[in-house]
Design a protein around this nucleic acid. Structure first.
Lengths: 234, 234
DNA sequence: GACTGTGAAAAGTTTCACAGCT
DNA sequence: AGCTGTGAAACTTTTCACAGTC
């Protein structure tokens, strides 16, 4: 866990399996996994960094460099065996097993999440749901029984939950996240449009469609660059 | 696929002769806008890079540097007037007006999106919905009438739509995106777990909760920083 | 005294280019 | 020949540190 800035004695190269892997590399690996899965389904048995790069719109060099942080998965002159590389990457990311996930908040959004069929096939099982509203407790949402928040700690422990999806109103999100951290949850997917604060060692990713839209409008305004103006589409 | 004007390396969005604002800077501005809005609502009239940085978990220097791409919004010795900076940033991002948005696909996800109340207050108006299924055409979803895909081009033009939210099955997403680009839409929010390809000048952001989860599991595995040496190839 | 705006330095990331294996 | 894996170079982004202004 310790990340010491000036590693004493040995840090010979910047890459290779011994170096610390940049977070930006980790964030790309799931996309590689997805593309490899598609190739496998399409019956492709061998690929190479060129083909992967074309699919992912990344340079071949970047793919090779990213993979080099973890080992040597290819064969010179040939490329990568799709099934093999996929297995390795899934293992690296911890996707070779199953994860139990709790959903906090069963309002409109929590409902949609619990009924979304996309998590399970990728090994993320929504096994518990919690809500602070007594009217919601005991209901069944997407096949999962809604529990009171007071049951959080025990259920997280007994059901071996490591990941939580938070879909409560913004005003309550930070409090809920604090509770989750307290229970030992170290990966949180947050759907509220707020900037959650967590201690080191805990990861948060936010799903924020408005923020995504707002990061594009800049490029839709006429004035964003003085010289080129709007790009005409033929 | 059409060819696009300009030689390789002279595309908008890449480095050019005039000082181009890095995309990573643009992606942070909406967060600044959000934090400033919260401060304003809390009655704070003046802030500074230190306070903003603490809220956003970024260094004060980064905030000052980011803002310096666009002008001088602060006063030395004092800081930033919240209302003033907010107004400026919104204008820079094109958030000082309203945007008309089309939603493509009114299945489970499209339904949730059209009923989500979070877009409108931020100036993103979901004014049209489209679906390829004739059974859905004519229905009212979230107060918007569902149109056939054949009406896309005309409606996009007449209703001045610049942004689209795509919530169709993965298999159809690329086709829909191609149609949108054809109609002149240059900003697309994609909810399908695929890697969409668009020509230069068109922006895509994807909402992909599974990818977000998969980028965290790495840090939940015990072995992520141990030296699991490179295995020799079989 | 306090804080911004900004060149310059440092750190981080991507791309190049080629040795070396298949 | 074809393609990987990887140091080194190029480029990008962040952080530092301080002159200048309020």
């Amino acid at each position: 866990m310790a990340t010491y800035p000036g590693d004493p004695g040995q840090l010979p190269g910047t890459s290779g399996p011994n170096a610390e892997v940049p977070e930006v590399v980790i964030s790309r690996l799931p996309q590689y996994v997805r593309t490899l899965t598609q190739l496998l389904e399409a019956g492709v048995e061998v690929t190479n960094s060129q083909q992967l790069g074309a699919q992912l719109q990344v340079t071949p060099a970047q793919i090779r460099k990213d993979l080099s942080y973890f080992g040597r998965f290819g064969k010179q002159g040939r490329g990568y065996r799709v099934r093999h590389l996929l297995t390795e990457l899934k293992q690296i990311l911890g996707l070779d097993g199953e994860w139990n996930v709790a959903v906090i908040g069963v309002g409109r959004l929590g409902n949609a999440i619990l009924n979304y069929p996309g998590f399970d096939p990728d090994g993320f099982h929504l096994v518990a749901a919690f809500d602070s509203n007594p009217n919601n407790v005991g209901r069944d949402v997407g096949g999962v029984g809604v529990q009171p928040m007071s049951a959080l700690a025990e259920t997280v422990a007994t059901r071996n939950i490591n990941i939580a999806i938070v879909a409560v109103p913004s005003a309550h999100t930070q409090t809920v996240i604090d509770q989750l951290v307290e229970c030992g949850v170290r990966a949180i997917l947050n759907y509220a449009p707020i900037n959650a604060q967590v201690p080191p060692g805990v990861r948060v990713r936010s799903i924020d469609p408005v923020l995504a839209l707002q990061s594009m409008t800049y490029y839709l305004t006429e004035s964003y660059h003085s010289v080129n103006g709007a790009q005409p589409l033929d």
